[in-house]
Nucleic acid binder design. Structure first.
Lengths: 194, 194, 194, 194
DNA sequence: GATGAATGAGCTTTCATTCAT
DNA sequence: GATGAATGAAAGCTCATTCAT
C-alpha cells in the first residue's frame, strides 16, 4: 500500500531527526526532507508535530515491549528471566540507538501528555520486572522483605542509566552482554533469599 | 551586592519556570515576571536563554554535589557511605523538587552542550560512588569481580529512577528514608563479598 | 450529458458551501465533498476557485434576472410592475436562500473582477427599475423631477436591505408579501406625480 | 502617549489595507508596512488579524454613529431630521471612503462574530431612523400605516446602496447633497400623511 | 474522464533579543 | 543599571492546484 509506506517513512525519518535534534529543535521540514516527502505530506498522516512524537512512542515502543514480554515468558526460572530482561533492554539501545535516544530524551519531557503517556507505557514495562520478582518470592528464591514496587524501579533504573551512557557515547562504551550480566548479577545477589 | 541579588533572583525564578514548563516552552518573559524584573534585565546577567539553563546547572547542582561529598566524607564505613549517599540523593528531590525536575528533564536533552555538560558534571557525581566501591573492595568488604564503573551507574540509575517517580507524582509517592534504605540494602547485598 | 451533470452538481454544491462559509473560508475539498466528486474533478470544469464563484454568479443570477424581466414585462401598469419587481426580489431570498446569501456577501468583495462584474450584472438588473420609472414618467404617473438613476438604486437598496435581514436571520423575520407591498407602497407614493 | 500612537497608526493602516484588498486578502505584513511598524508590533496591540477588523468597526463606526445621533438631535422637525440623516450618511462615504468600503464589504461577511456584531451595531444605527418615524407619526406628519421597522430599513437600504455606488466608483459618481435631497424627498413623500 | 495523494508556496503568529529612554 | 516596546526571523500548518494512475 502506498499510504502505509509514507507513514512508515515519516516515522522512521522522525525517529532519526528527533534523536539528532530533539523534539523542539527538530523542524517539520527536517523530517520531511529526511523522509523525502513534502512538508505538507506529513499532515496527511499526522495531525501535528506532537502527534508524530506520540506515534513514534506508540508504534516503536509498543513493538519493543511485546518482544520483551515474549522473551521473558519463554524462560521458567525467575533468575533467568531477570537476565533475559536485562540483555534485551540493553540490546535495544544497541540495535536501535535513535529510538533509545528519543526514549531517553523526549519521554522525560514535562509536557502533560507525555507524563501521562509515560505513566501508562512504562508501568506496563516495569511491571514485567515486578511480576518476575513476585514469582521468585513465592518460590522462595527471592527475599520476602524486598518490595517489588521499589525493586522493579531500581533494576529498571540501573539498566536505563546504562542505556543513557550508551546513547550518549559516540562509540560503544561497553560490551552489552558483560554489562547485562553484571547488572543482573548484582541485582540477583541483592535480592537473593539464601 | 545589588547585582548578585538580581542574578540570584533570576536563577531561582528560572528553576521554577523551567520545572513547570520545560526549557523550550518557558518564555524569557515568564522568567522575568517570576523574578520581578524586566525582560531586558535578564540579558544584563545572562547571555541568552540557554545560558540561564547552564547557570542553573552549574550553580545549583554544584552546591548539591559539594554537600553530598561532604556528607559521604564524614562516614568511615563504605556501607554506611552508600547509605548516606542514597538518602542524600533522594532527599534532594524532596527538598528541591523544581531543581530535581529540571535535572530529570532538561539534563537529558540532545543539545550538544548539555551532553558535554552532563558527562562532566555527572562523572564527578557518580565517581563518588565508584570511589566508595573501590574503597570497600580494597577493604575486602565488596566483591572484587564487581566493576566499579558499572556498579556506580547501576546504583545511581536506581536512585535516579526513584527520583523520577517522585518528581512526576503530584503527591509524595513513597517514604524517602524507607526507600533509600531498601535501595542501599539491595545494592549492598548485591556487591557484598561474603 | 454526463459532463454537464457534474458541472451542475459542483455549482450547486458551491452555492451551499459559499453561503455557509463564505468564499475565502470555503475549501475546494468542501465543495468537492458536497458535490460528491473528487477534488481534482473540480478542475476539469473550472479553472480555479474564483472561477467557480464567477460561474455561480453568471449562471444562477442570470437565470433570476431573466425571470424577473419576464414577470415585469407581463404587466402593463408601471405601478403594478414595481410591485411585481419587489415581490419577485424578496421571494428569491426565500426560495433560494443560499444564493441570496452569496449575493449579499460575496458580490460585495473588493476583488477587482467582482467589482467589475457587479457593475455589469447589477446594471442590467436595476435598469429594469429605471425603465419602469421612465415609462411611468412619460405616462405622467410618476414625478418628472425624480431622477431614474437615483430612484432605481434607492428602490433596489431598500429591497436589498430587506433581503439582508432575511438571509441573516435564522428564522423568517417577516412576511414576504406584506413587506413587498409596504416597500412598493412607500416608493410609489414617494414618486407619485399627483 | 507612545503606545496609543501605534494603536492609532495600525488602525488607520488597516482601514486602508482592508479597503484595498479585503480582509482575507490583506496580509498582516501589508498592514505592518503601511503602518511603518514591524509585523510583530501589531500583536502588541491586537490579539490577531480578526481583532484588528473588529477594532476598526468598534472605534471608527462608533464615532460615526455618535456624530450622526448628535446631528439628528439638533433638529426638531422629523422631516428635517430625515434629511440630516441622509446627508450625514452619504457624506461619510465621501469623507472616509476607505472606512465606507470596509463597512460595505467586510461587515457583510458570513463570519459568526461579524453577523452578531452587525446586528448590534446596525440596530443602533437604523433605530435612529425608526425613532424619527415614530416621532413623525405621533405628530401626525407621517402615515400611521407605515411600519417603522420596515421603513427604517428601506430608507437605510436606499442610502446604503448609494454609498456602494460611491465607493465602487473610482471617480465621484454623483453630487452628495443633491442625492441626499432626492432620496429624502422620495422617502418623505412616500410616508407623508397628507 | 475521474481520482485523491502529493505538493510547496504562503500565511499568521510567537518570542528571544535589542536598544532608546 | 533597568526598563519594556519594538523588532523580525523563524516555523507550524493550510489548502489550491497538479498529475500519475
Amino acid at each position: 500500500m502506498k499510504s502505509s509506506d509514507k507513514h512508515e517513512k515519516i516515522i522512521r525519518a522522525a525517529v532519526k531527526v528527533f534523536a539528532k535534534k530533539g523534539f523542539f529543535s527538530a523542524r517539520i521540514s527536517d523530517i520531511a526532507k529526511a523522509a523525502k516527502v513534502a512538508d505538507g505530506t506529513i499532515y496527511l498522516y499526522f495531525n501535528n508535530k506532537f502527534d508524530i512524537l506520540i506515534s513514534v512512542f506508540d508504534e516503536e515502543i509498543g513493538k519493543f515491549i511485546a518482544q520483551t514480554k515474549k522473551l521473558v515468558d519463554q524462560e521458567e526460572n525467575p533468575q533467568k528471566k531477570i537476565e533475559v530482561f536485562a540483555l534485551k533492554h540493553l540490546s535495544m539501545a544497541k540495535e536501535n540507538k535513535s529510538l533509545a535516544e528519543i526514549i531517553q530524551m523526549e519521554l522525560r519531557q514535562s509536557h502533560k501528555l507525555i507524563k501521562e503517556y509515560r505513566k501508562t507505557i512504562f508501568s506496563e514495562y516495569v511491571d514485567i520486572i515486578s511480576a518476575i520478582i513476585r514469582q521468585g518470592q513465592s518460590k522462595g528464591i527471592f527475599r520476602k522483605d524486598v518490595k517489588p514496587g521499589i525493586a522493579k524501579r531500581a533494576f529498571f533504573g540501573a539498566l536505563d542509566e546504562m542505556t543513557r551512557l550508551w546513547v550518549l557515547s559516540p562509540k560503544p562504551p561497553y560490551d552489552i552482554e558483560d554489562t547485562a550480566k553484571q547488572i543482573s548479577n548484582i541485582f540477583l545477589q541483592g535480592i537473593n533469599a539464601a
